[in-house]
Amino acid sequence: MRYFWLSLKAIFIKDIVTELRAKQVLPTMIVLGMLIVWVLRMASEAVLQSEAVIGPVALWIAFLFAGLLAQERSFATEQQQDCIYALLLAPVDEGTIYLAKLFVNIVLLSIFEIIIVPVVIVAFKLNINNWPALIGVLLLGNIAISSVGTLFSAIVQLSRARGALLSILVLVILMPMMIPATFALLLVFGAIPPEMIGTGALAFVGTLGSAVGYMITFDAVFVVACWLLFGFAIKE
């Protein structure tokens, strides 16, 4: 067990330090996120009073695409000078490599979230009535995006159209999660009047609790499945 933690820490710190020194992807992620948010902000000008609804949607779109950038990098760097072989030759379980890369992606996406959420709040004039719920929902979405993305990043590493392939793989699996995730953010930002929650007036008839419960299930299923299957995906 101690060996597991040591190797997890070693790979995690290696990746974080390389990213912080080279600043390969974080600046691009942040600029892309801001551009997505501002493009949607401009688009929302077409309809008056639509900010509260489009804001959460913009937030998820920004997360999805910034997350794709982070995940694409997580194994692309290992391809340079065949570092991946050294990583695989190291006496470390493949599952540990997956978890370390997953934590790196979660941390990168969290840094991104810390910067982009205030931008969205300012741009879309949003009010937050439930801070802990906001942080929880964002973290759950972050884990879901990163868990699937990290596995598929290992799958597409040899492909020439790496980014394109990664984006379709990740987006198709994450599609079902977008319904409860967007609903939860709409509730957190108060875009839905309380008396409408849980009624047939909305397409989604659950409450914040059911949406969060769904996201927890989604995260648990895919983190465990990706962790178990990662060994098959990474081998040559």
Binding site: V148, I155, I173, I179, Y214, A225, A233
Partner: peptide, 23 residues
């Protein structure tokens, strides 16, 4: 790799059903 994706995709199907159940 395709087998890995097929398993992940199969796990996605019940998730789709659960998420859609709220609609």
């Amino acid at each position: 790799v395709c087998a890995v994706f097929a398993i992940i995709a199969f796990l996605d199907v019940p998730m789709v059903y659960i998420s859609a159940r709220y609609m």
